[in-house]
């Protein structure tokens, strides 16, 4: 584990940064994936919710150290619909892990989603990814359900949920735990 190269710079993504950072973002994220995402998956998130994407940059050369990619939209299977934030991807360069970079990125994303009126934030994480689960659970996420063989490698996942606002018990009629989610994470 290398020491951090001084104070990291955390910046919000914006479309004008695509040519500079998208290749690095893809490279960083695909490292932990057995299946690569096409560029459209990245653009799907970054073009629509660039404001929910944060990058941690090395202060000396502005190279990418970590990134978080999210979305936030009305979730339809609930009535009334909730504003549901979704953490789609989170990655930190292996050399700089263990310094709280991922936690800092997640916090920035949650803050941004809270600011934009999110009711809840959800994500899926591989059951074997103990560090990720610990990170999210330390922030307040709860495992709401387990998803059997969710990933192509045959591993199961946990759905983690962070409720930011009280559910209105009178308004909500569908309180089931289920919905169709095809999102990557």
């Amino acid at each position: 584990m290398a020491a951090l190269p001084g104070e990291l710079k955390y910046i919000q993504y914006e479309h004008s940064l695509e040519s500079v950072y998208l290749p690095a973002i893809r490279a960083l994220i695909s490292k932990d994936l057995s299946e690569p995402y096409s560029i459209y998956v990245y653009r799907y998130f970054l073009y629509q919710w660039g404001h929910l994407c944060y990058m941690a940059l090395n202060p000396s050369d502005s190279s990418l150290v970590g990134v978080i990619i999210c979305k936030l939209e009305a979730h339809a299977s609930h009535s009334p619909p909730t504003m549901r934030g979704y953490i789609a991807m989170l990655a930190v360069s292996a050399t700089y892990r263990g310094h709280g970079v991922a936690t800092a990125l997640v916090k920035k994303a949650i803050d941004a989603m809270t600011h934009r009126n999110a009711d809840e934030v959800v994500l899926e994480t591989e059951e074997t990814n103990i560090p990720a689960m610990r990170l999210y659970e330390r922030l307040g996420f709860l495992r709401s359900k387990k998803l059997h063989r969710y990933y192509l490698n045959g591993n199961s996942a946990y759905r983690l949920v962070l409720l930011l606002k009280q559910i209105d018990p009178d308004a909500a009629t569908d309180l089931s735990l289920d919905e169709v989610d095809t999102g990557p994470s």
């Binding site: 709401s144 559910i167 309180l175």
Partner: peptide, 22 residues
Amino acid sequence: PPPRPYSTDELRYDIRMKPFAP
């Protein structure tokens, strides 16, 4: 318990007991 700066005990109770609430 973990520190959980973004959550309250009551909100987590809501999530955990969601299936039983109705």
